[in-house]
């Protein structure tokens, strides 16, 4: 999958479902969890979004703040996971 295509999906999901504000000027490398912008409650949503949208299951131990802290990081994790399939 094209990185930009994946990134746009992650970005749209983050703005609409997590930040609930499509107008928010989110930078792709902006920390989401570590900044407190969204709380760890949303981690489960990120996991299910990746499963349903990309058909990729990220196991619990990898669904961490370290791996998922920005649109860029989430996209990279998805691409790495898809490449490994």
């Amino acid at each position: 999958m094209d990185r930009n295509e994946a990134l746009q999906k992650v970005r749209a999901f983050t703005l609409k479902e997590l930040l609930k504000n499509p107008e928010y000027g989110l930078k792709n490398d902006e920390p989401l969890f570590s900044s407190g912008l969204i709380d760890s409650f949303a981690m489960a949503q990120v996991g299910v979004f990746i499963e349903t949208e990309f058909n990729l299951y990220i196991p619990d131990p990898e669904l961490t703040v370290e791996n998922m802290d920005s649109v860029d990081l989430i996209t990279d994790k998805i691409l790495a996971g898809l490449a490994a399939q």
Binding site: E17, S40, F41, A42, A44, Q45, G47, V48, F49
Partner: peptide, 11 residues
């Protein structure tokens, strides 16, 4: 799965 994650923060 989506709704449970959104409303309860659990997969």
């Amino acid at each position: 799965r989506t709704n449970v994650a959104r409303e309860h923060g659990i997969r």
